[in-house]
Design a protein around this nucleic acid. Structure first.
Lengths: 211, 211
DNA sequence: TAGATTGTTAATCGATTAACAATC
DNA sequence: TAGATTGTTAATCGATTAACAATC
């Protein structure tokens, strides 16, 4: 699989392609053309063909794409053929929501431990996982190989957690705290800035249909 | 304020500028140059000046930008000088997390009602707001002017909720369900696809440092 | 084979960066 | 005033779209 500098824009469209293909698989649809995919995704047929051809020729002239096979291929490209062990720090509602979400809807992404500083949360069980004292994170990461660290803390704690994750050799950090954190060299950072998203929504609402 | 077709890319950088300026305000820093802002944001100084000049000349030659004033200006551009009434549908952990988040951290964005279909959730109070039966959403929207509808349900219910929001004349929809929903003409849709975000993270982890 | 549709190259469009005159 | 830094125009870069030959 060639992946020498595929643009970010392309990568971020892949999960969406996959999501739509998943529905087609569920509907037992066997083949689809770039034109039909265009109607479903909103991207142009040309763009879809360009995107997919970054990774190889998945289609067949005169036929289109095999839905099941394309779905599988995109999964392979995204790295969804392996398991990811994840640790959540911050077990408030958001941390619990992410834990539930991953547990019930994201096969392949497994929460192995959860941490918090709040004595009221330490000890409770969330989907059979007992919340541990944040103090033990370092030790836990040293003893267990964890691919993804998830930050669901407040803004102020986020960088400290990120540092511990970095030292603990996670490969990626999924950050939900409204902070711009720094991560170690070679560690992937994916931010979900809810605040930015809501502010953007406010902008578009305010600027709807005005001269 | 001119806003004839400002590109999406620019808009999505604004909340980040604002977030960083907010910290500078807190640190009592008075002025900042595009060059210094560049170091803090990671965007080039040139891009920052271009971005800001879409909305007018906020800076002063030889001086730079006044931090407090720029912060305020960006807030105005984003439409953060008014209140937004919001309704949440789906009161599981995620819905509750959003409710807490908005209540405690987002002045100007006010949750006025919450709805669910689950009898176990109907009647409980989340930050003084009682969860109502989803059945009453339609009536509620008819009687109250709501700007933002928030979808924290499962994939399968998302479109139904979106339809009710559309009929109830919300101006924007903040969607957390992993579904591609359709919304009425003129209604702004902002998606937070956690699943896509996690899949993207998996991609970058899988493709770190490989030939 | 004829028709359909991809893979891929070329053209266009838009966004980012560079450069510099204007000006505080 | 001299120095600094913006606002803005021009150049570059990259991403999207169009076109069409290849081919199933």
């Amino acid at each position: 699989m060639r992946d020498n500098r595929i643009s970010n824009a392309v990568i971020r469209r892949l999960p969406r392609y996959r999501r739509i293909l998943e529905e087609l698989v569920a509907k037992d649809i066997e083949r689809i053309s770039s034109n039909e995919l265009s109607a479903l995704t909103g991207y142009t047929a040309s763009q879809i063909r360009q995107d997919l051809n970054n990774f190889g020729g998945f289609g067949q002239q005169g036929y289109g794409y095999n839905v099941q096979s394309l779905f599988t291929q995109i999964g392979l490209i995204l790295g969804l053929d392996r398991d990811y062990r994840m640790v959540i720090v911050g077990c408030g509602n958001l941390g619990q929501a992410i834990a539930n979400y991953a547990t019930y809807y994201k096969r392949g992404f497994r929460i192995t431990a959860m941490f918090d500083v709040n004595p009221k949360l330490i000890g409770i069980k969330i989907n059979d996982i007992e919340v541990q004292d944040y103090e033990f994170l370092e030790k836990y990461l040293a003893e267990n190989e964890i691919e993804i660290g998830i930050i669901c803390t407040t803004k102020n704690s986020a960088q400290d957690v990120a540092n511990k994750f970095t030292e603990g050799n996670v490969k990626g950090i999924w950050n939900f705290a409204p902070a711009d954190i720094e991560v170690g060299e070679g560690i992937v950072l994916e931010n979900v800035h809810l605040s930015d998203s809501l502010n953007t929504l406010a902008y578009f609402i305010s600027h709807q249909e005005r001269p």
